[in-house]
Amino acid sequence: MIFTGDKAWLRPFLATMGLGGLVACGVGDDGIWFPMVVLATAGIGFAVLFRVFPRGLDFALGAAIGFATYAALFTIVARTAFPEAPDLLVGLAFLLPMASFLFAVLLRQGPLRHLVEAGETPDERHLRRIGRFFLLLALIGTASLSVPANRMTPGLQGLVMVAGAGLIGALAAQAVRELVRLMVDMAQLMDAISGRVVALVVPIAAYAALFSLITIVFACLFRIADGLSHVALFSGPFGPIRMNFRDAFHFNIVTISTVGYGDIWPVDDGARLLAAVEVLAGQILLLFGFYEITRSRLSADEARRDDAGPGGE
């Protein structure tokens, strides 16, 4: 059974479907059909992969990231190269590569399960094969964008898209071992990241608190200065702006992060000088964040070495 009584599947399922639902909503430019196909594919993919590889959250996140990347790239290429393809054929084209990959997983689940449980590190042969697979995908995507398929009739656009998706599906089925091994690599990476995040919680929280403090203090200063001034200290595309706290808070987020949207800017020399001070404070805060994160990482590494003992790894 896929869903056992211990609910080991629940967290991986929620993570997979959460990301899948977000991507489905994000790519839903033209109606509800395609987002429903994306969401359903995410659910089917989780059911198959968790049945064959009943691993934890890290493996599910790695698979979900791969699925989200595929959905995003498919949407960009499909909507650009085949803008008038019928919705039914768009959904079929999206489903074909995933279905081919999952079917290949079911056919070879024994050797693939052993591969996942072994957790081998990537070697040159694996990297060469997975690189060849992604190169072929890039060539197919480039060909789709280069050929003037958008001049074809809607039905023909859909058929060409389905044919290309079928070719990708065949490549995915052939490279199923390398793709599953890539998922294992992603799971190992997610596991390593999650272990490091614990050591970074304190410096990240401290950085966020100081960032909030600087932003709020300068927002108040700008708001008070503008309120006491007889003339507006800030301007925008449509002329002078009288700052409320929301505008001041937005301006300070943009200033301290050095984004510079250009929707609000200071026109008074004093306000400009205060903005420069805030930018300097933001740069100092950034250096503090780098220092604290690096120090926490080094401390965590030293603690692990001490726990391992003189002969430990």
Rank of each mutant, 00 (worst) to 15 (best):
L200S: 05
E178P: 02
D30N: 13
F222M: 11
A172R: 00
I130R: 04
T41Q: 02
A192E: 09
S144I: 07
I224C: 07
V201T: 15
G282Y: 03
L136P: 05
E313R: 15
L221Y: 10
R11V: 13
D123H: 05
A81S: 10
A206R: 15
P310E: 04
I204M: 12
A71W: 01
L88W: 09
G260F: 02
D87N: 08
A308E: 12
T4S: 13
L200D: 05
C220L: 15
I76G: 06
P111T: 03
V37K: 03
L89C: 04
I264F: 09
F133I: 02
L145G: 04
D301H: 14
G21E: 13
Y291G: 12
V259N: 13
V37N: 05
A68E: 01
S146G: 13
R305H: 12
L14G: 10
A225E: 10
G21T: 09
G56N: 03
A64E: 00
P35Q: 03
T142N: 11
R305W: 12
G260T: 05
L102T: 00
I65Y: 02
A93N: 04
T294D: 15
L156I: 08
G119T: 08
I2P: 14
E292H: 15
L39M: 11
D123G: 07
V147Q: 10
V259C: 10
G119R: 06
A173F: 02
L274Y: 02
R125Y: 12
V37A: 07
G260S: 01
N150A: 15
G239C: 10
L115K: 00
E313V: 15
S296C: 06
G119M: 05
P111F: 01
H126R: 07
G5A: 14
F3H: 02
L127Y: 07
A8C: 11
S299F: 14
V52Y: 00
T258D: 14
V259L: 14
V176S: 00
V202M: 12
P266L: 04
Q109T: 03
V198M: 03
A219H: 10
E278A: 09
A232K: 04
T75V: 03
L139K: 06
P240W: 07
A208W: 11
R125V: 14
R304A: 15
A300M: 03
A170H: 07
P86T: 03
V180T: 00
G131N: 01
V116I: 11
G289R: 09
H250G: 13
T255V: 11
D263C: 05
C25L: 12
D306V: 14
I193C: 00
L286V: 12
